[in-house]
Amino acid sequence: MPGTNTSAARPFGRRLLRRLGRPSRGAAVVWVPLAALVCGLFTGALASRAAWETSRAQPDRAEASAILTMAFPGHDLGEIDTPPALFVVYGHALRLGTVKTLVFGDGGEYQESATGAAAFGAPPVPAEQIVAVARDRLTGAGWRVYDPRVAEGISCADKMCATPLPITDTTLTARRGDTILNASVSSQTAVDATYLAVELHRAPPPLVVPAGVFGTLLGAVAGWWVFGWASRRTAGRRRGGAVSVLLGVAVVLWWLPVLLAVPSLLRHHLGESHPAWHPFWEWLGQPAASLLFLVGAVCALLALGLAAGARRNQTPEAPVG
């Protein structure tokens, strides 16, 4: 009968959720939710990176030349450099040879690329005039121009710096559509130095946010089920202690970069104009802390392997009332 089938299905559903989702007692009550949440964050970051592939390529020389000529008339910006890929490490596309660079200390160099150009020597007009003209021309062309940031410094006329010269460095940021412009204008007068540097790059494509949210939810649910299962399968058994220690170490190694990166990036965003947020994975301290992530992943896999190999007849856990 329909009623009988429904009532029978409910206890089965509760048993299934209890087995898969609910962690056992003790330390697992703490590390299982933390592991599930950070797994969700990592999955969301991976999904957002995949969504970045829907972005348009970085501006080519023709597009960049049109923008630079419009915004900075009369300035010889020389050769326009175009990047080899959407994301680069030290200006090069990611490949097997650069994986070592990411893992051992330089993971922070994995960044979105940009099309760039620069002008050298003393500025032909005051730096303030270059910035004012660029703001007016960009605004007139439909760009949203953010308030420039000015930093003061000192330049030296000779190697001994007997005559220190005050200089200013002004950063100008603007956005139109999915294109972001970052320009640095210096008042320095050295012949071999850069007085104007401009970079053009793409804003995150629209799919990045929904992909990140969906990936986070999916990863958190999967992590809750998997780690909850591991904690219940080994609770009260010989391998329970080893599983708890391994997963506890993994949780610490995964969360530590997050706790360090989030406050730093928040201060950075609040202190400067940002037409777009930094990529999801940078908020998790990745790939700058990719070595910690990999060590934590090895610990988690070892713990899950121990849980999967635990025998049912080994000191079963006390029944839950």
Rank of each mutant, 00 (worst) to 15 (best):
L256N: 04
W254K: 00
F227S: 12
V226L: 15
W224R: 09
V226F: 06
V262I: 12
W255G: 04
A235Y: 07
S244C: 01
W254C: 01
V245Q: 11
A235T: 07
V249E: 01
V262K: 03
W254P: 02
L247M: 10
R232A: 11
A261D: 09
G240A: 10
W229V: 13
A250M: 13
W255A: 00
L260A: 13
V243A: 12
A235V: 04
V243K: 14
A261I: 08
A242G: 15
G248V: 11
L260F: 07
G223S: 00
W225S: 00
R233T: 12
V258F: 14
A250I: 07
V251D: 02
V245Y: 14
T234G: 01
F227G: 10
A242Q: 09
A230Y: 07
A235N: 10
L246F: 14
V249T: 03
F227T: 13
P257V: 08
R239N: 15
F227H: 13
A250N: 01
G248Y: 06
P263M: 10
V249K: 07
W225Q: 04
V252Y: 09
G223R: 00
L247Y: 04
S231R: 03
S244G: 12
G241L: 11
W254I: 02
V249N: 05
A230L: 01
L256G: 02
S231E: 02
T234Q: 07
P263C: 03
G228E: 03
G223A: 02
V249P: 04
S244D: 15
L246E: 12
V252H: 05
G223D: 03
W229L: 13
V226Q: 12
L247H: 13
P263K: 13
A235D: 14
L253Q: 01
G248I: 07
S264K: 13
L256T: 15
W224P: 05
G223M: 07
G236T: 01
V245H: 07
R239Q: 15
G223T: 06
L256Y: 12
W255V: 08
P257E: 10
V243W: 02
V252N: 01
S264M: 14
V226K: 13
W224C: 04
G223W: 08
L246N: 02
R237Q: 05
G228S: 05
S231T: 06
V226I: 15
R238H: 09
G240Q: 06
P263H: 07
T234Y: 08
L246I: 03
G241A: 14
L246T: 01
L247T: 05
R239F: 13
R232Q: 10
S231N: 09
V245A: 10
V249D: 10
L260Q: 03
A230N: 07
V258E: 01
G236V: 03
